[in-house]
Design a protein around this nucleic acid. Structure first.
Lengths: 147, 147
DNA sequence: TATTGTTATACTCTATAACTATA
DNA sequence: TATAGTTATAGAGTATAACAATA
């Protein structure tokens, strides 16, 4: 057997996927953004920022919950003023979830903080290796064992 | 700003850390191992296999829950016959959680399946790049933004 | 006094199943 | 019929706070 590499990656993923990882990271990075922004609601904001206005059913797969879960998260975000619901002009059953201006600012700020945080943690790496790692990690998530 | 790399890694992590990732992966890999083995209880088994018998309070940090959480998971695993509780000879307040023979077999099998699964998904990578990625990922989890 | 394992409690988040409105 | 958003419900998992036993 030659599974050393697989084993090494599996062990590292075990640490990354610990339940507390997301929560701790977000807790540290969401300072001053209000209670509505946490590791549960951020994927909704992030997906809207990445792809533009979407319906709840459409977002469900990206976020990793079903449409009732998207509805609940959207309601929290709407109350906080970070998104708004608009009727879908092409389908009167559906609503589009749209980032408000404040929502856009929050996403931009949190994305910047997260990227900064990661960049800082890579600052001691040899030149070029961080780039290589980023490329590999992207490929791994795109075609890796989770797909 | 030169946060392209940080941003790229952040986006990839967003996919990796999706709530459903762990659950789906485990669901696919725990075929035939009984109901007690899932993404919630596996970290307990895995930590015991890695470090030997431990107390619940001692395991809590590794697993990412508090000691009451370890107790609950341990009770499920004990009922399933995968671990047993033994008195700690050095501290009569504590119990050591110990893998049974069946527990050892389950961990070994699941570790092998996981490593195989990852190795397979990397089989199309250029020679040497998987090794590089594994090394980078280990370093990233050891000293990265989560520490 | 402090820490151990355990349990009861309250809380959060989830999927499922309903419901109404529209395709 | 099927799918949209929403809501009530039940289930799983958690942290917190208690408890008795031991350090």
């Amino acid at each position: 057997m030659d599974n050393e590499i697989g084993q090494e990656i599996a062990d590292a993923l075990g640490i990354l996927l610990k339940r507390t990882t997301r929560a701790h990271l977000h807790q540290r990075l969401t300072e001053g953004m209000g209670e509505a922004v946490d590791d549960v609601t951020y994927p909704v904001l992030s997906a809207l920022a990445r792809t533009g206005p979407r319906s709840a059913a459409d977002l469900a797969h990206d976020v990793g919950v079903d449409r009732s879960g998207v509805t609940r998260r959207a309601s929290r975000l709407e109350t906080a003023g970070l998104i708004r619901r608009e009727p879908d002009p092409t389908d009167r059953r559906a609503h589009l979830l749209v980032l408000t201006e404040e929502g856009r600012l929050v996403v931009a700020e949190l994305r910047a903080r997260l990227a900064d945080h990661i960049t800082t943690s890579l600052s001691s790496w040899p030149p070029g290796e961080a780039e290589t790692f980023a490329r590999h990690l992207r490929r791994f998530t795109a075609e890796g064992p989770f797909v």
